[in-house]
Design a binder for these strands. Structure first.
Lengths: 249, 249
DNA sequence: CGTTCTCTTGACTCATCTCAAATCTGGTGG
DNA sequence: CCACCAGATTTGAGATGAGTCAAGAGAACG
């Protein structure tokens, strides 16, 4: 379970940074960190605040230090689809392009370690460790986007909900070092609307399917933003994915 | 027509390669091309042939020289979603991971310039030009995947079809240097089934929506694999996208 | 304690899927 | 050149999952 939010300090030295080993700077050596230190700054956004608008020039890029942000694209008539979920250590902004192509919105309070785009790009081109990590992270994002496409194109509403809950549960278990095997509880960092945008559904369908999974005993709602999963395998079975994932010889 | 039949030669020298300036090697200098030359080989796959199976180890990676290949993921019960479309110059295989996570299938006859994964990775780590281009291509793929997610999650069947036709029409116009404005004809490199897998629809729905667009006069079928678009803007209107894309101040 | 927002639930509609059959196509062998 | 076959495509009829519209129940906030 998550504790009350710890008041974050500016991590003056990158070496103390909580995302030091997973962010874009993961492979940097101390001398390189000094250079990053020199050009970075921190900024905090409140829940619901827009960090960047689609189509606008993006003069800062950076890493999520804490909190959750969403990337979404909107059709002319208002239909919206989330296309990315940014968690701590994820990178915001696309090097080599002047504008963002989607809205970036803080889902809860988000803290960002940011750089001026131009300064960061200059540093990247001189720092192979940064470029290598950036490539690796982008490849991971692409893999995730492709799993997500399978979900959007072929899964039922119930499977979509189960898949999302499984993702969130697994990540939370990772963070808190619980074992996934027995009952685990996690908090939902997304509103029903954000879940609907993530899954390509309506709010009502999200709500109905959560109720259905609750009725089936697969999940228990502690309150509307905290979920308990008594049997993680049962949840995976509902997600439509190969349950033996990775076990194939 | 040329008198002598043109038989595709192995492009012994990269400098003569048709995808030289768009593939992963785009930024390489002649001395670097020599190194690529030394470790590359060519292979041709027939239409329908599987180039790589999901979950299998992938010991070769490389670039599509000609033809079209598809990436797709399959659920345990057989539902399938295409998650990538590989065109000439696109890169097959993921550096830094031993297995592929989806099936790679030739949609028509595909010719590949390939490298042993281990040799290629060794070269990448010593060749910044390769790494930079790889990052750039991966970022483009990620952008494309995100547009695709919007299509899968929020567009209607008719909009999905129109979007796909618009993409194919635009690419074909690019290749043949036609202007997109007036009536243009292009060939459909995908079967109805492949289109359905791309769009998250069934074959029947694909067929019905193509018929509907035909009846509405938006497209004309020369035959079932060749489409004429009398008015490209009308097609874009059907696609659901902002028609004024990029024109917003 | 209203006000407002989020979430849940119900009743009905409709887009897309499913199942089934007809038609078209290209390729093969006689 | 034609008959035939297998696969691809189209079309129809009916089923159904998810959307829409509407109302009510909680929660959060000042």
């Amino acid at each position: 379970m998550l504790q009350a939010p710890v008041i974050m300090q500016d991590h003056e030295r990158c070496a103390d940074c909580p995302i030091r080993h997973r962010a874009v700077c993961a492979y940097c050596e101390p001398p390189e960190l000094v250079k990053l230190d020199a050009i970075k700054s921190y900024k905090t956004y409140k829940a619901g605040e827009t960090i960047a608008w689609a189509g606008e020039p993006m003069d800062v890029i950076g890493s999520v230090v804490s909190g959750v942000a969403t990337l979404s694209r909107t059709l002319a008539d208002g239909r919206r689809q989330m296309v990315g979920l940014l968690l701590p250590s994820d990178f915001i902004g696309r090097p080599g392009r002047p504008t963002v192509s989607f809205d970036v919105v803080a889902a809860n309070e988000v803290r960002i370690c940011r750089f001026k785009t131009s300064e960061f790009e200059a540093l990247v081109s001189k720092t192979p460790a940064l470029e290598r990590r950036l490539l690796e992270m982008t490849l991971d994002d692409l893999d995730a986007a492709r799993d997500w496409m399978l979900l959007l194109g072929r899964k039922t509403a119930r499977e979509k909900i189960a898949s999302l809950l499984a993702i969130l549960a697994r990540r939370d278990a990772n963070l808190t070092q619980q074992t996934v095997a027995d009952g685990l509880i996690f908090s939902l960092p997304l509103t029903r609307e954000a879940m609907a945008d993530y899954l390509g559904l309506t709010i009502e369908t999200v709500s109905r399917q959560i109720s259905a999974l609750k009725k089936a005993g697969v999940i228990v709602l502690e309150d509307s933003r905290h979920i308990r999963v008594p049997d993680f395998v049962a949840l995976l079975d509902e997600s439509g994915d190969d349950s033996d994932g990775g076990m194939v010889s």
